[in-house]
Design a protein around this nucleic acid. Structure first.
Lengths: 193, 193
DNA sequence: ATAATTAGGAACCAATTGGTACAAAACAAA
DNA sequence: TTTGTTTTGTACCAATTGGTTCCTAATTAT
């Protein structure tokens, strides 16, 4: 028995994600944030409490959407074998010839706030673990993979997860000439279709 | 024919590097920066002009000292073969059991300012290239390295550079249980002494 | 000595920061 | 329609932001 909210919650959080992703936490000020979310101060503080909580909501939104899409891609057997899917992950997200080098929000968040914010550290660690697990699974779907015991596969997944985050960082300086197909093929010691 | 400056320029820049490294650019305010540099507003603005220029000076300082040390380590034949030196790079800088997970200033800088600051983008890209070149050279100093044509070695160096930056990012969430010796041994497909 | 020049430091500045107060408006239940 | 509850937007706030001014102190060349 009250007035319903007028704005679309998901759209607002998505707007917050976009600008935090692009500018970072500290460099995003309230006016810009409100504009990106499409709401006024009143609605914002009523719904989110403060800037930091909005940032956390944006991180969760990224987890649900972007990390979710990456995990889905890595597990989609209609897109080729595991190695091919991993290559697609690298080519699609940021590293490719896409316009704006916005990198990966998880990488941004862990670098900017990880050491000073336990909540952000935990959330970003969980997201990179999710990615790592999906990569591990994809590695199990490669036919001619050598040395494929469990420990070795875990190590390979750990390498690729860090390689992914490192590539996301480097993409921000304009780096985009990496030949991911051959790079990953060499790493995995296998031919990629 | 003028009053000489009282403070030690190099010590001041080093202080700036420390706090920018720890807090990032936007999150470091003038009072904290001045305190870390050990100088007053007057001296600061006289010597550096503004906050941004001090940040650039801190980046150059990092290049000279920290990247320089890494390059020296990678080229020091008294520390084992190339593979062993690369492992030491990972174990020494941040990823090891060192206390504060401050990661790598280059990684911080490219992630925070890369897309919005051409100068920072250029400087960080140059530093990662320097690292990449040193890694490439170290790869040439491994005896039982397989598939060692030039192109393959370049690809391996590119992988390791990105792996390094990614590990630096992840270290900020408290991640520090990576077994770099076996991880890199697997990647390089060789035994590490 | 003294003139010229520069370092140092405190007071000061406008603009911006994230956040709050509050009144008007919009709804649901009665 | 009335009542109770919640959203919304504006006006407002103290504190902080990066940066400037300006006077004094220190030094060297003459």
């Amino acid at each position: 028995m009250a007035r319903p909210r007028e704005f679309d919650m998901d759209a607002a959080v998505d707007g917050a994600m976009q600008i935090f992703w692009r500018l970072g936490y500290a460099a995003t000020n309230l006016p810009e944030l409100l504009s990106a979310m499409g709401l006024s101060r009143g609605s914002f503080y009523k719904a989110f409490g403060d800037k930091h909580s909005a940032y956390l909501a944006a991180l969760d939104h990224y987890d649900r959407n972007c990390i979710g899409a990456a995990v889905r891609l890595l597990g989609d057997r209609s897109r080729g074998d595991g190695a091919a899917r991993i290559v697609q992950l690298f080519e699609q997200t940021g590293c490719g010839e896409g316009v704006a080098p916005r990198g990966c929000f998880v990488c941004n968040a862990m670098v900017e706030l990880g050491p000073h914010d336990r909540t952000v550290a935990a959330k970003t660690a969980a997201m990179s673990s999710r990615l790592d697990a999906a990569i591990y699974d994809a590695l199990g779907d490669i036919d001619d993979l050598k040395h494929d015991d469990t420990a070795s596969r875990h190590r390979k997944a750990a390498i690729i997860t860090r390689l992914y985050l490192g590539a996301q960082a480097m993409s921000k300086t304009g780096d985009k000439d990496a030949d991911w197909k051959n790079l990953l093929g060499e790493l995995l010691d296998c031919e990629i279709a």
